[in-house]
Nucleic acid binder design. Structure first.
Lengths: 134, 134
DNA sequence: ATGAATGCAAACTCTTTGCACATTG
DNA sequence: CAATGTGCAAAGAGTTTGCATTCAT
C-alpha cells in the first residue's frame, strides 16, 4: 500500500485510443459502463480493444479526469471535468443516481482523520434511499 | 419491475443456516461481504455452504431484513433494524479500524435525501487514511 | 531507439445456477 | 408427502493480466 495515492500522470502517452475513450466518455450524459463504452466505440468504427478501454478508464479515474462508481456489479465511469469532489445519492429501487456535493462532510472527514492522527485521508460517502418516483 | 417490491416471505422455511446467517449479520458492526460472512461462519464451526449464504442474504435483503449495497466490486450486506449507526476510520496500511461517530453527517445526509425527494435514506460513510503508526 | 500502450486470450474474482439429496411444515 | 432449502461444482458476468507487437516520444 505504498502506491501513489493521487496517481500522477507520469509519462502518460497520447494515443488515439486514449483520446477516443476520453471523448466517448465526454459525449455521454451520465455514467457508462466500460463495456457499453467499448461497444459504442466499436460501432463508431474504432477497432479499439476492450482491455484498452478498461485501462484507459482506470487511468482517467486515477488522474481525476473521470468519476468512478459501482452499481449492480459493474464499474461505471463518467467524465469529470473539474477535480471537483462529489458524492452520490442513489435510489435503491430504480438505481437512479444524483450527484451531490458534500461541503460540510469534506471538512468533517478531514478533521476526524486529523484528530486520530491519520494522514492522506480519503473518504467514501454515499446516500441511498427510495426516490420520489418509486 | 413487476416483482414484489416488498417481497413477502412466501413460504419461507426456517433452517439453522438461515438463522446462522441472520445472526452473524446482526453481530457485525457495519456492512459485510457475503464471503467474509461465510468465512466467519465456517470458522465458528458452521459447515454452511457459500451458495447458501448468498441465497440467505438475498432473501434477507428481499424481505427488507437486510440492507444491501455494492462497493469495490462486491456485495455488502448489513442487518437492517439494528439502527445503531456508526462509521469507520480505516488505515489503508495496517487495516486498523476505529469507530467514529458522524454527528454532523447524519443530519446532512438526511437533508440531502429529503431535498431530493428521497425516502428511507441511509448512508455509507467511511474515511480511509494512513494511521499514526504507519 | 526505448519503453509505454495495445490487443488478444487466458486467468481471476465474485456471484448465480443446475441438480440430487436432506429438511421443513 | 410435497415443496423448499442445501451443498457442491460448474457456469456466468465483469474485470484484470501476461506477453509479443506496435507506436509515441
Amino acid at each position: 500500500m505504498t502506491e501513489n495515492a493521487m496517481g500522477a500522470a507520469t509519462g502518460r502517452r497520447r494515443t488515439w485510443q486514449r483520446d477516443a475513450v476520453r471523448e466517448a466518455l465526454g459525449g455521454q450524459d451520465g455514467f457508462v459502463s466500460a463495456q457499453v463504452l467499448h461497444a459504442g466505440l466499436r460501432e463508431a468504427g474504432s477497432p479499439i480493444g476492450l482491455a484498452t478501454v478498461y485501462r484507459a478508464l482506470a487511468d482517467l479515474a486515477a488522474d481525476g479526469a473521470a468519476d468512478h462508481l459501482q452499481l449492480d456489479g459493474e464499474s461505471l465511469y463518467r467524465a469529470c471535468g473539474s477535480a471537483d469532489h462529489h458524492h452520490h445519492l442513489i435510489c435503491r429501487s430504480c438505481g437512479k443516481t444524483l450527484e451531490i456535493s458534500a461541503g460540510p462532510v469534506e471538512a468533517w472527514a478531514r478533521s476526524v482523520a486529523a484528530d486520530n492522527g491519520f494522514r492522506e485521508a480519503e473518504h467514501v460517502v454515499d446516500v441511498f434511499g427510495i426516490c420520489a418516483d418509486c
